[in-house]
């Protein structure tokens, strides 16, 4: 998982959080990847005492109003409470007036203190979403990601094996391209993988002999999509006469990407074999399997029955 610090919130998340630094600018190193985000609430009144250290503490209208109705010395206690929890940072929303005492204490203790024009609810929402999106595990793979009948298929294999050509044939049959050659893969919190391409480049392909072509311009907007859940990996390789390829399809192989296990098919390429057709059929077979129908195993079981029956009553040939 990538780590995020308070500095990332201030600088990289600027468009989403619009934080302005009021104190603690030299102390932005704390990790907020898994930080507890909390409204200060009763923490100020000293009622709540089990806040976790390194939290992100948010002060909204209620907190600031509560603070403002306190008189003189009463104000130092809630500030002390806040500081004592050693928050990763403190954020005041709605551009509310930040109590001077809080600013001076944060300056002194070097605790990052921010203000934002956003409403509390909006800030909390954006904060959680932004941290969530920026801490997901990701990787890039060389391959082509296509959507065949709704099944996201990542086609991998050595350069020059014809991945792009296979994808082009699938597209010309009405299937959809997500990315060619550079696929960004992000692990979602649900545990599945989403694949996407790079801006501009992903919906173009380079076909030897043709050059760079635009898929949506040639095939229409339905020939592409921006991202797709990856459900199957197809590995293309040169046909090796001595290698045993899967002839039965009863056992399934897997490939792990970011620790997510995906079914893997290895398809040997040689002249006269339409790899696109094989992938099209693989997608249909995948859909069947998702519905609990495993053709190869079903056939295996049916054959069991037929052979067993024949063993009991030996056939005398065609009558």
């Amino acid at each position: 998982m990538s780590r995020l610090t308070v500095r990332n919130l201030l600088e990289d998340a600027k468009p989403f959080l619009q934080l302005k630094c009021l104190a603690g600018a030299t102390n932005l190193w704390k990790d907020v990847s898994e930080a507890h985000i909390m409204k200060a609430g009763l923490l100020l009144a000293g009622v709540e005492r089990d806040a976790q250290p390194d939290s992100i503490i948010v002060l909204g209208q209620k907190e600031i109003s509560y603070f403002e109705q306190l008189k003189g010395r009463q104000r130092s206690e809630p500030v002390r409470q806040l500081i004592e929890f050693q928050p990763a940072c403190i954020i005041v929303t709605k551009n509310l007036p930040v109590p001077r005492l809080l600013v001076t204490n944060c300056l002194e203790k070097k605790i990052p203190l921010f203000s934002t024009p956003l409403l509390t609810s909006r800030l909390l929402d954006n904060l959680e979403t932004w941290i969530d999106e920026n801490t997901r595990e990701s990787t890039t793979m060389h391959g082509v990601l296509v959507d065949v009948l709704g099944v996201g298929i990542l086609i991998v294999g050595p350069s020059g094996i014809g991945k792009s050509e296979v994808a082009l044939e699938l597209i010309s049959r009405g299937h959809r391209l997500i990315a060619d050659d550079l696929v960004e893969i992000v692990k979602q919190h649900g545990g599945h993988l989403m694949g996407q391409g790079r801006p501009l480049v992903s919906h173009h392909m380079e076909i030897r002999g043709l050059g760079i072509i635009s898929i949506p311009a040639l095939f229409g907007p339905t020939a592409v999509r921006d991202s797709k859940k990856i459900e199957l990996v197809v590995e293309l390789e040169e046909w090796q006469p001595k290698k045993e390829y899967d002839r039965l399809g009863i056992d399934e192989l897997h490939r792990s990407i970011l620790d997510v296990r995906l079914p893997l098919l290895t398809i040997p390429v040689r002249p006269g074999r339409s790899v696109a057709t094989i992938i099209d059929v693989a997608a249909r077979d995948r859909l069947l399997k998702e519905r609990g129908i495993h053709s190869a195993r079903l056939f295996h079981d049916q054959l069991d029955v037929v052979l067993a029956t024949r063993a009991i009553q030996p056939s005398k040939g065609i009558e």
């Binding site: 990315a179 050659d181 790079r198 480049v201 992903s202």
Partner: peptide
């Protein structure tokens, strides 16, 4: 891969 390299932007 040309598209791969272009994808780096």
């Amino acid at each position: 891969s040309i598209m791969g390299l272009l994808g780096l932007l």
